[in-house]
Simulated scan of single mutants.
Amino acid sequence: MNNEKLKQKRFTFTMSLLAILILILFIISLNMGVVRIAPLDVFKTLFGMGSPRDELVLVDFRLPRMLLALVIGAALAVSGAILQGVSKNDLADPGILGINTGAGFAVILFIYFFQGSMNNVSTFGILLMPLFALMGAVTAAFLIYALAWKKGIDPVRLILVGIGVNSGFGAVIIIFQLKMNPQDFMQAAVWLSGDIWGANWKFVSIISPLILLLLPFAFYKSHVLNLLNLGDQVAIGLGIRVERERRFLLLVAVALAGFGVAAGGGIAFLGLVAPHIAKRLMGPKHQMFLPVTALLGSLLLLVADTLGKNILAPTEIPVGIVVAILSAPYFIYLLMKAK
């Protein structure tokens, strides 16, 4: 009982600390950028007492982008945690496995055939893009699962098949990019490397509710992930419909990744690193480490976005590249440690 109380206190402390860090970084990031705004002016603008210039910069440009960074980070991190739990593979990640690339491929197809330009995505297009991203992510996940299945799912085989599917979708994406005009080609290349390009309130109002509806469902299914980690036979013995629950959880993970890609491009490694850090902090119990994973994902993506906007200002580094630079060494470490 004392041990449970200690774990609960640790969970409460960790969640509170992460929330405070996110809030502090959020305020700092509002102040930073090509146009610097004093902290006092930031608060004045947020309460409707700022200058027209400050209101334009903060409300129309920075706030939507930062809010999207928070929800996209949480979505990709929780997606990675679910994939690792379902596949029993610590190296599973929607970016590495090709799910992100599948979603990106569907979005590029949609823009190429129906929108004509990445600068000219209509309101109707913004409504349809998450659906296309979801279909692309589901297609990629189905291909990976089908090709990796051989009397069960072997973790190493899953990673190798995922990398192959990732490369295949990447090659087809390049073909369509080459058919675009030079400006759209460059924008598509930046977006696919991970760029929060939908930095407007339309994207926030469409993408955020979809992700915020899926996250509580993922947390609710935490106990199922705990039982799946005990092995299929034990889970069946405890009354869990293993295949049905596995399919549900995979669909949730794929949907989270797809919606994240629709607004944030191909951000890899975040779904790998955040769950591992959360597990080190909270242990393997999903009821505790999934919410911590969500906040860690939000914090890491907000850090990456802040660095990307400011480290080489006025030039912006795509957030996906910053995440990759920060996370790739950890991925190599995990790969070398894996048996």
Rank of each mutant, 00 (worst) to 15 (best):
Ala262Phe: 01
Leu192Val: 10
Ala69Asp: 05
Lys339Cys: 12
Lys151Met: 14
Met129Trp: 02
Thr123His: 03
Ile144Leu: 10
Phe185Val: 11
Gly102His: 01
Val273Gln: 03
Lys285Thr: 14
Gln287Leu: 14
Ile28Asn: 04
Leu335Asp: 07
Val252Asn: 04
Leu213Trp: 01
Ala133Ser: 09
Lys285Glu: 15
Met129Gln: 01
Lys279Thr: 15
Thr14Val: 14
Lys202Gln: 09
Pro182Lys: 01
Val161Cys: 11
Leu225Trp: 04
Lys202Leu: 02
Leu25His: 07
Ala74Phe: 00
Thr14Phe: 03
Thr12Asp: 07
Leu272Cys: 07
Met282Asp: 12
Asn100Gly: 12
Leu23Phe: 14
Tyr145Lys: 10
Tyr145Glu: 09
Leu30Glu: 02
Ala77Pro: 07
Gly136Met: 05
Ala313Leu: 00
Asn119Cys: 02
Gln187Met: 12
Glu245Tyr: 05
Lys44Ile: 02
Thr306Gln: 03
Phe43Glu: 04
Asn181Phe: 04
Ile82Pro: 01
Ser327Thr: 06
Leu307Arg: 06
Asn166Gly: 12
Gly260His: 00
Tyr145Met: 11
Ser167Leu: 15
Met288Leu: 15
Ile321Leu: 09
Phe11Glu: 09
Asn3Phe: 11
Ala75Pro: 00
Val34Pro: 00
Leu227Pro: 03
Val165Asp: 06
Glu55Lys: 03
Lys88Tyr: 12
Thr123Gly: 11
Ile96Cys: 07
Arg36Thr: 15
Ala218Thr: 10
Ile96Gln: 11
Val254Pro: 02
Trp201Met: 04
Leu227Thr: 09
Leu143Glu: 09
Ser51Lys: 07
Asp154Glu: 11
Val322Tyr: 05
Val254Arg: 04
Gly104Ala: 13
Ala148Cys: 08
Phe113Trp: 05
Ala199Glu: 00
His276Lys: 07
Ser51Val: 06
Leu281Asn: 10
Ala106Leu: 04
Phe185Trp: 08
Ala171Met: 13
Ala38Lys: 07
Ile321Asp: 00
Phe269Glu: 05
Ile126Arg: 00
Ile126Ala: 03
Lys309Ile: 09
Asp41Met: 08
Val34Thr: 09
Leu6Ala: 13
Tyr145Cys: 06
Ala81Tyr: 01
Gly264Pro: 05
Glu55Asn: 14
Phe47Ile: 14
Leu76Tyr: 05
Ala324Leu: 02
Asn2Tyr: 12
Asn119Leu: 15
Asn100Met: 11
Ile236Leu: 10
Pro182Arg: 05
Lys88Glu: 13
Arg53Ser: 12
Ala92Arg: 07
His223Asn: 14
Lys179Ser: 14
Arg10Gly: 14
Ala328Phe: 14
Leu335Tyr: 08
Ser87Arg: 00
Leu70Met: 09
Ile24Glu: 06
Ile111His: 00
Leu76Arg: 00
Leu158Trp: 08
Phe114Tyr: 01
Asp60Asn: 14
Ala140Cys: 03
Ala75Trp: 00
Val303Gly: 03
Gly194Phe: 01
Ser16Lys: 02
Met15Ile: 15
Ile82Val: 15
Gly162Lys: 03
Leu134Trp: 02
Leu227Lys: 10
Val59Glu: 03
Val71Tyr: 00
Trp191Val: 13
Met118His: 03
Ser51Pro: 06
Val78Met: 08
Phe331Asn: 05
